[in-house]
Amino acid sequence: MSLPKPLMRGLLGRRLRFHLPIAFTLSIMAAVVFKYTVTEPRKRAYAEFYKQYDAVKEFNAMKEAGIFESVRPSGE
């Protein structure tokens, strides 16, 4: 009794027909999950932060703290 020869001709095509749709489906699902679990909450957090952010007030606070070397505090 001998083992049957493996079917090598067209093996790549058969494997791709099976695995390619699975790979595309999983990658699209991963992208959708990433979008709604990471990017959307991050965009909402940035929007909430910049609703109340005052750049001039922040600059003046840093200027008074002496962070900038080229800007003098307003008291000098």
Rank of each mutant, 00 (worst) to 15 (best):
T37R: 01
V71K: 15
A65C: 05
Y53P: 09
A31M: 02
R17T: 07
L12F: 09
E48L: 12
P21R: 03
V33N: 06
A30Y: 10
A45Y: 15
V56A: 03
E64H: 04
K43E: 14
E40N: 12
P73L: 00
A45V: 13
E58P: 12
P6K: 06
D54T: 00
M8F: 13
V33K: 08
E64M: 03
Y36W: 09
P21M: 04
R72N: 14
S70Y: 06
T25M: 10
M62Q: 11
T39Q: 14
T39S: 12
A55G: 05
A55E: 10
Y46G: 07
S74D: 14
E58F: 05
M8Q: 14
A23F: 14
F68L: 12
L26D: 07
L12C: 06
E64W: 03
E64P: 02
D54I: 02
L20Q: 03
A23R: 14
P6T: 08
H19V: 03
R44P: 06
P21C: 00
V32W: 06
S27P: 03
I28N: 02
A65N: 11
K57D: 09
A55P: 04
K63D: 04
F59E: 01
K63M: 06
A31W: 04
F68S: 07
A45Q: 12
F18V: 01
K63W: 03
R14Q: 02
K35W: 04
M1P: 15
R44Y: 11
L16D: 03
Y53C: 00
K35C: 06
E48P: 02
A55F: 13
I67M: 11
